[in-house]
């Protein structure tokens, strides 16, 4: 409901909205982040195709079923890193050389592209591993609003300056995004983008203007903070979200499955 009203529903900001709407928001954020991180390490350190596949499916299923995110949205988000992952695996899968070689070989004018069965399998498992790692990170970002993630960093005793900067940057993204959108619409209504040259010009003006806007905003913000007894220490209310037995069971189940796979499949 809120996405329509604010009109931010496109682009990477949608991740933010999904996090707020997630049914897994009531889970303890530290628990989610730590478990996801542990399984992320498992995937990377074990480097086994079955483990990667298992974690990938388990994480995807958790976010979709547990967090009530529609599969279509999940897959669309999974497609975001697709290009990077495929480009990265091409180098692993294929060999470029001036002489024939490998199990499969393609002659392209003056050089050969070749691949071996082993290299293709390696590339395949690399792709799965990468997606598996992404699925662990998505478990965090798609179910935990930014404020809670930053709250976790505070608990880890990340320096106060960094934590507060994260809060401020997060809040400012939306304010600057709004200002930028308004200015772009205003520029467009005056034919600011009718040609390439004009577009570059408008783009430049808008961004220099954004700097001025942010400076002014920062001043107003500071006044508002002070008026509410801000003492140089940003402290936010954090809801107590106890870890529930079922959630621990969920993590243990995945751990047990990974262990079983390692023991019986290898």
């Amino acid at each position: 409901m809120s996405d329509k009203r604010a009109g931010h529903s496109h682009g990477s900001l949608s991740i933010d909205q999904y996090a707020y709407g997630s049914a897994m928001r009531s889970w303890n954020p530290s628990f989610k982040i730590i478990t996801a991180a542990v399984f992320l390490v498992c995937v990377i350190a074990m480097d086994r195709l079955p483990v990667s596949l298992l974690v990938l499916f388990f994480m995807a299923l958790t976010v979709m079923a547990g967090g009530r995110l529609s599969p279509l949205r999940y897959l669309r988000l999974m497609a975001v890193p697709l290009a990077f992952i495929i480009l990265g695996s091409i180098a692993v899968a294929f060999d470029f050389s001036l002489s024939r070689g490998g199990d499969y070989c393609l002659f392209l004018g003056f050089f050969y592209i070749s691949a071996t069965g082993k290299s293709l399998l390696e590339a395949g498992s690399l792709i799965v591993k990468a997606f598996s790692a992404v699925s662990c990170l998505y478990l965090i970002t798609l179910t935990t609003p930014m404020g809670e993630i930053v709250g976790f960093f505070r608990k880890l005793h990340v320096p106060k300056l960094l934590v507060e900067l994260m809060y401020m940057i997060y809040r400012f993204i939306f304010i600057l995004y709004d200002s930028e959108r308004k200015m772009t619409v205003a520029a467009r209504s005056r034919l600011g983008y009718h040609s390439l040259k004009a577009s570059w010009y408008s783009f430049g003006r808008i961004f220099s203007n954004l700097l001025v806007v942010s400076m002014r905003r920062a001043g107003a913000y500071y006044d508002a903070l002070e008026s509410r007894c801000y003492n140089g220490d940003l402290r936010f209310w954090e809801d107590k979200k106890p870890v529930r037995p079922l959630q621990v069971l969920w993590a243990l189940a995945l751990g047990a499955l990974i262990l079983a796979l390692r023991l019986f499949v290898g």
Binding site: P145, R217, Y221, A224, R228, L234, F236, W237
Partner: peptide, 20 residues
């Protein structure tokens, strides 16, 4: 928008009392 700082409505309203 120049006043709201926190990332949920509850945290926002609780900000002043927290500072007290």
């Amino acid at each position: 928008d120049s006043q709201i700082i926190a990332s949920t409505v509850y945290q926002e309203a609780a900000f002043g009392p927290m500072n007290l």
